[in-house]
Simulated scan of single mutants.
Amino acid sequence: MSSPSRNLVVDVGNSGIKAAVFSDDDLMLPVSRFRTGDWSAIDGMVTNLGVRNIIYSTVANVPSERWTDTWEKAGIGVYTLDRSKPLPFQSDYRTMDTLGQDRIAAVAGTVGRLHTARLIVDAGSCVTSDLVDRRDRYLGGNISPGVSMRLRSMHEFTARLPLVETGAAVDTVGRSTEQALLHGGQVGVVYEIEGLFGRLVNVHRDLQLVLTGGDASLLLPYFSIDVLSYPNLVLRGLNQILSTYVNK
């Protein structure tokens, strides 16, 4: 009986790197976080955990040939998320060449696990909302500012509104300027998502709301509809895509 394949998936964002090792479909260890460009730390995971395949997606920084050559010479498969290669889902998106790698990975992470239509919300620096039908066909989505971006912009683009930190929003409406900003910038994201969901569920009756991303736990308490919380969905999707590449 062959041993499970260990895959390293690396998500390079604007402010840092998230990396995880999967044994087939199982996350082996807690997700590791590094500063952007710290590929020596990634190499440590490769060496210490017996990684056989690597996939990375990036918006900002790619590993140098120093690292990719080292891994490939060790017999490790090294892949980057490539929109031109086969994906585990079909798409109606008109500009796949501009579709964000994190959005592609989030969609892939639900394939084979959810068998209904779903609205996948990734709450990070921006909030992305992506619609997939029950046949795993990607239909498109929306992008809007994330919580921190909303709070910061209200402060920076006005003369007197203060910068408020995220936190617990009390009552239904804000009873002070700080609370009003918090409700608008934080809970307002929830209202936006619920409004979109309410329109889409009229067409996709079996629609499921899926929530992931760094601000997911911040938003989760304020939803009035059922939410499937799915941490590390982008990383799981990268592992799913990597399996597709290796099998092809």
Rank of each mutant, 00 (worst) to 15 (best):
V31K: 05
R33M: 04
F34M: 01
R35M: 11
R35K: 11
G37C: 00
G37P: 01
D38W: 02
W39Y: 01
A41V: 01
I42A: 03
D43C: 04
D43R: 05
D43T: 05
G44R: 12
M45S: 03
V46T: 02
N48E: 15
N48M: 12
N48D: 15
L49N: 08
L49S: 05
G50L: 09
R52S: 13
R52V: 05
N53Q: 12
I54G: 01
I54E: 02
I54R: 02
I55H: 02
I55D: 02
I55F: 04
Y56P: 11
Y56E: 14
Y56D: 10
S57I: 12
S57C: 12
T58V: 10
T58M: 07
A60G: 14
A60L: 14
N61C: 13
N61Y: 09
V62D: 09
P63G: 00
S64H: 04
S64Y: 02
S64D: 14
S64A: 07
E65P: 04
W67C: 00
W67N: 01
T70E: 11
T70N: 11
W71L: 02
W71N: 02
W71K: 01
W71G: 00
E72W: 04
K73C: 09
K73E: 15
Y79P: 00
Y79H: 09
Y79R: 01
L81Y: 04
L81F: 04
L81W: 08
D82H: 08
D82W: 13
R83S: 14
R83L: 07
S84L: 11
S84G: 09
S84R: 13
S84A: 12
K85C: 09
K85Y: 11
P86Y: 10
P86V: 12
P86L: 08
P86A: 10
P86H: 10
P86Q: 08
L87G: 01
P88S: 02
P88Y: 03
F89N: 06
F89R: 08
Q90I: 12
Q90V: 09
Y93H: 10
Y93P: 11
R94I: 14
R94C: 11
M96S: 13
D97T: 15
D97G: 10
T98P: 03
T98C: 07
L99H: 03
D102S: 07
I104M: 04
I104T: 00
A105N: 09
A106S: 15
V107H: 01
V107M: 01
A108I: 09
A108M: 05
A108N: 06
G109Q: 06
G109Y: 10
T110Q: 07
T110S: 13
V111H: 06
V111D: 08
G112W: 14
L114P: 08
L114M: 12
